[in-house]
């Protein structure tokens, strides 16, 4: 099943979105909606991807959009604990050097 759970946690201007599930063309609109709703008070967007088991180009597209949005607002996007597979994907697509991965 194409599911994605997003857990939100805002603390000291840091929004942490903890993702669980799959980030595919089916589910990525969910994440996209969350990101669209981020206000200017958020300086840092932290996306925890430890529990993301699947990322497609649609997911990447949302991540890139988030990156662009945060950069434009002078903020920061942190992608934390991606799985080796996700990391491999970033590397494959050349996004590894663009994203801030922790």
């Amino acid at each position: 099943m194409e599911t994605l759970e997003i857990a939100k946690n805002t603390e000291n201007g840091i929004l942490t979105l903890t993702l669980t599930g799959r980030l595919s063309i089916v589910t990525s609109p969910q994440l996209s909606t969350e990101i669209d709703g981020i206000g200017s008070d958020i300086q840092t967007l932290r996306i925890v991807m430890a529990k993301i088991e699947y990322v497609s180009s649609a997911g990447l597209r949302v991540l890139v959009a988030a990156q662009k949005k945060m950069s434009a607002a002078g903020g920061v996007l942190e992608i934390t604990s991606p799985t080796s597979e996700t990391l491999e994907l970033f590397e494959m697509t050349g996004l590894k050097d663009i994203f801030t991965i922790k």
């Binding site: 597209r61 890139v64 990156q67 994907l89 494959m92 697509t93 996004l95 663009i98």
Partner: peptide, 16 residues
């Protein structure tokens, strides 16, 4: 892409 500004999603899917 060299920077986030250059990052384009088109074509990525096929690459993947």
């Amino acid at each position: 892409p060299a920077s986030i500004e250059e990052a384009k999603i088109g074509g990525l899917g096929i690459l993947m």
